[in-house]
Design a protein around this nucleic acid. Sequence first.
DNA 1: TAATTATGACGAC
DNA 2: TCGTCCTAATTAC
Length: 334
Amino acid sequence: MPEGHSVHRITRQFERNFVGHVVHASSPQGRFAEGASDLDGRRMTDARAVGKQMFLGFEGDRWLRVHLGMYGAWDFAGDILMDATIASSNGRMGQTNQKGTFLEGPNPDAVVLDAAGENSITSIGAPRRTRLRMSESEREGDELETFPPEPVGQVRVRLLTDTVVADLRGPTACEVLDPAQVEQVVDRLGPDPLIDDGPEAEERFTNVVRRKPTPIGLLLMDQNVVSGIGNVYRAELLFRAKQNPHTPGRLVPEEHVRHLWHDWAKLLRIGVETGQMMTMDDLDDEAWRAAMANRADRHWVYKREGLPCRVCGTNIAMEEMAGRKLYWCPYCQA
DNA sequence: TAATTATGACGAC
DNA sequence: TCGTCCTAATTAC
């Protein structure tokens, strides 16, 4: 269930640890044997994220497309070069005010795009010999006894360098594409605020939404309309906009639509920086720490069915919308 | 030990 | 709108 922020973080991890290295590819599970042997022995040249899709480029115009779907995950192990914020999300946070760091950072985009890690925010420390699971959340595991570790469970793909290994399990998509096929996939996707950061993207999003009869709650989840939003961000963005999820896109006030775009860009950056789906910003330091420490304190409405709205006290509602659970406040989002 | 759950997406009616 | 695919952790019995 990783939403866009996780995929961007995982991509960073590949940039730091795999790009430029020759990769030994295999499929311990066997279900990706052909693709793995095609990639085996090639140097990784690129790692890119668009919405929930990740593309790993290899010499010889090969691209590995991975979509994690509902429960896919990457497990990294070995001497991993860590992002500063990965250590933070595991309770090793220093005295730095993380809130100020990403909300007021000089150029948030550089954080994502700068693989060289010149930006202070992405300062790279010494590699740590450990395990790291990256999915919708991140968890550091036990120390490593031997390298590489035996694959555990259903590992679709194993990518191995001299020092680091990445195991993919449970993806909904995992295939080798040529450049034209990659372009096809990307062309079908709606804008991703971390890639399409100009005014054109906002226009594109606004125009599409304001033409559709589809409920805005559905449009936000439609990857052809906007990339990277999943069930959590959908619920939280709509609450923050005080917007009823059932309103047809074309009836949503234009300023709300534009607000949704900018707010998504903001929450996505926070997510990429912290590794947490923090959807309640504007908290004082103490509340912020509580939210970082406790999942239950992180959201306005998601998974809060029956609990009082944090703003008005009305019980948060839950209903199925197109087979997914939708959470909202009937009063604030009337 | 079995059932349930999950932060997706697609294709068949 | 429904069924289906992908997997592991958690909860129920």
